[in-house]
């Protein structure tokens, strides 16, 4: 069957959606049990997650086959483009919630806690002695309860250490790695358009490696934070915002790397993608650029001006 420009391909019945729903349900159901301390939780979670992975696998396989069988006309491809674009927009909004929280805390909550604004009584009666700083090293709880404080700040923070110590500062390297990877994936795309398979594989491969190194560096940074800096999720609002923003970003890098890796494997092993028919790869690369942009914002907001 060749794509007829006038006929939109409506797929036949499929069990995948239902299976995907079941898998998703098991995953979160298991996760909730797990968090609530039930011993069954991890197993249900794992079953769900594996099933989910399997479903995604065969779902994408189906889509790829349909495309190669020529069932997809230009219009359907445009649908995929729109869908990916709006999906990325939804991700932007997800990050916006966390950036918004950071903004709010720094602009409003902390100044109020230290007595700014109309209601200086907050500081006077509830947190006497607390003064706003960022990164927040001394939490209101520490000021008030001293040794007994539960919500304690970190011992050290991740902020820009000044130009002298810059080279030993991990986030800078992370930024370099990620920005470079955006460039390499772009070069790969160009190579694909020029039908230069070898160069495409090379540059895409490099991108994947860069992605992996980013994640590794990030993991190292976390390890350092937890073991050497006393910076944890529990380190007051600084720790909370730091780990949530970088953590969700890291999770997205991981997913993006996986996506690119799969694209790389498809190209290397199966010779997928043609110069003008490579949406799978393009979608992954958009996602990659998006992840990169988030990092740049994060770098400035969390590290430089943090």
């Amino acid at each position: 069957m060749a794509a007829n420009e006038n006929v939109y391909y409506v797929p036949a019945q499929s069990r995948l959606p239902l299976l995907a729903s079941i898998a998703l349900f098991l995953t979160v159901f298991g996760a909730a049990h797990w968090l609530n301390g039930s011993a069954k939780g991890p197993w249900i979670f794992l079953t769900g997650a594996l099933l989910f992975a399997a479903v995604l696998w065969s779902w994408f396989a189906t889509v790829i086959h349909e495309n190669m069988a020529g069932l997809n006309n230009q219009q359907l491809k445009r649908s995929y483009v729109w869908a990916m674009g709006w999906f990325i927009f939804s991700e932007v909004m997800f990050f916006a919630a966390f950036f918004g929280a950071l903004f709010y805390v720094r602009t409003f909550a902390l100044p109020w806690l230290s007595g700014a604004g109309d209601t200086s009584s907050t500081n006077e009666f509830l947190w006497p002695g607390f003064t706003e700083q960022w990164p927040l090293m001394t939490t209101p709880d520490m000021v008030r309860h001293g040794e007994q404080a539960v919500m304690t700040g970190p011992a050290e923070n991740m902020s820009f250490p000044g130009f002298k110590a810059m080279l030993g500062w991990l986030p800078l390297w992370n930024t370099l790695v990620l920005v470079t990877s955006s460039l390499t994936v772009h070069i790969a795309h160009g190579a694909l358009k020029n039908n230069n398979r070898k160069s495409f594989n090379l540059w895409l491969g490099i991108t994947v490696l860069l992605g992996i190194s980013f994640v590794a560096l990030q993991a190292w940074e976390y390890h350092h934070a937890y073991t050497a800096m006393g910076l944890t999720l529990n380190s007051g609002i600084y720790g909370a915002t730091f780990f949530m923003l970088t953590g969700f970003h890291g999770a997205h890098v991981t997913i993006g790397t996986l996506m690119l890796l799969i694209m790389w494997l498809r190209s290397v092993l199966k010779n997928h993608f043609k110069p003008h028919d490579s949406f799978g790869f393009e979608a992954a690369s958009w996602y990659w650029h998006f992840v990169d942009v988030v990092w740049v914002v994060l770098f400035f907001v969390v590290y430089i001006f943090g």
């Binding site: 709010y104 805390v105 927040l136 209101p140 709880d141 008030r144 007051g236 609002i237 915002t241």
Partner: peptide
């Protein structure tokens, strides 16, 4: 996970 987004003691609100 012990974060303090909504807890003033840790600097949240």
């Amino acid at each position: 996970f012990g974060t303090s987004f909504f807890n003033a003691a840790g600097g949240g609100d």
